[in-house]
Amino acid sequence: MSRARTRVIPCLLLKGDSLVKSVKFKDYRYIGDPINTVRIFNELEVDELVFLDITASKESRSPNFKLLENIASECFMPLAYGGGLRTLSDVRTIFNIGFEKVVINSAAFSNPDLIPEIVEIYGSQAVVGSIDYKSNIFKRFHVYSNGGSKKQDPSPKEWASHLETKGVGEILLTSIERDGTWNGYDIKMVKEISQSLSVPLIANGGAGTVEHLGEVVKMGGASAVAVGSMVVYQKKDMGVLVNFPDKNKLKDVLG
Rank of each mutant, 00 (worst) to 15 (best):
H212L: 07
K150V: 10
D132R: 08
Q195V: 09
P112V: 03
Y122T: 01
P63L: 09
A226I: 00
W182V: 01
D53R: 09
R86C: 07
V168F: 03
V240I: 14
L250K: 01
K218L: 13
V240S: 10
P10I: 00
K188M: 10
I121L: 05
P34Q: 11
Y233R: 07
T87A: 15
V50L: 03
A80F: 05
V227T: 02
D132S: 06
L85C: 08
Y233K: 06
R5E: 05
K218C: 05
P10Q: 04
V102I: 12
V231D: 03
F99D: 01
T209K: 00
E177G: 14
A4D: 14
V102L: 08
S196Q: 14
L172D: 04
L49K: 01
M189L: 11
K139P: 07
D186Q: 09
S155L: 08
K251P: 01
V217A: 08
V217K: 05
V50Q: 01
A108I: 01
G147E: 01
M189T: 12
S198H: 14
N146H: 15
Y233A: 02
R86A: 09
T37K: 03
E59G: 04
M230C: 04
H212K: 09
Q152E: 10
N36C: 06
N70C: 06
K26D: 07
G169D: 13
N111G: 04
I97Y: 13
